[in-house]
Computed example of a mutant assay.
Amino acid sequence: MKLTRIEMFKDLSNMEQAKLLGMLTKLELPAGTLLFEQGDPGDRMFIVERGTIELFLNTEAGGRRSLALLGQWEVLGEMALLTGEVRSAGAQAAVETTLRGQL
């Protein structure tokens, strides 16, 4: 995985990339797997290595409103991690997906 493909990591040296990758766990998610819910603690971020993650909001009627589909090399969860706020949206694997992140 080349982290320099991701805007926020583009200026990292090879050594810095290797250190960061060493801290990230590979997560395999079957389609439909819930990664996190709106309101959960924002304590981790993830990089989509393969597949698609859907970001969504829960509606008052008990449904969901899709916000975005994130694909390869996109990052999610970074805002809650950096601000210490709870998750502003939920995230679910739209298809079989491989992520890199911290557990």
Rank of each mutant, 00 (worst) to 15 (best):
M8A: 05
W73I: 00
T97A: 04
A31N: 06
L27H: 06
A61Y: 14
F9N: 07
K2A: 02
G32Y: 05
E96A: 03
L99I: 03
R64E: 06
Q38Y: 14
L3F: 15
V75S: 04
Q102F: 00
V75Q: 01
E60D: 13
A18M: 06
S66F: 11
F9A: 07
Q72I: 00
V75Y: 10
F56G: 04
T52N: 13
T98W: 08
G71L: 07
D43V: 02
R64H: 13
S66Y: 10
D43Y: 13
S88F: 08
P30F: 07
V48N: 14
L24Q: 03
L99C: 05
L69C: 11
A94Q: 01
V75I: 01
G101D: 08
A93P: 03
E78N: 02
I53E: 06
K19V: 04
L3A: 00
E54W: 08
A89N: 05
E49Q: 06
M1S: 13
T59A: 14
I6S: 13
S88W: 10
G62T: 10
A61D: 15
A31V: 00
M79Y: 10
I47Y: 10
M79H: 14
E7L: 12
G42E: 15
G77S: 11
T59D: 07
M23S: 15
F56S: 14
F56D: 05
M1V: 07
E60Y: 11
K2V: 02
L76H: 03
T52R: 15
G101Y: 05
Q102L: 12
L20P: 02
L3H: 02
L35H: 02
M45A: 14
R87Q: 03
L99P: 05
G39T: 02
N58F: 15
L81V: 08
L81N: 03
R44L: 08
Q38P: 13
E37T: 03
G77H: 03
W73Y: 01
E28R: 06
S13T: 11
T98E: 09
D43Q: 14
E78D: 03
L70Y: 07
I6P: 07
G63H: 12
G51V: 04
I6T: 09
E37A: 07
W73C: 04
P30H: 13
E85V: 04
L81W: 09
Q72W: 00
E37H: 14
T97Y: 08
M1R: 12
S66M: 09
S13C: 08
R100Y: 00
L55M: 15
R50E: 15
T25K: 15
P41Y: 15
G62L: 02
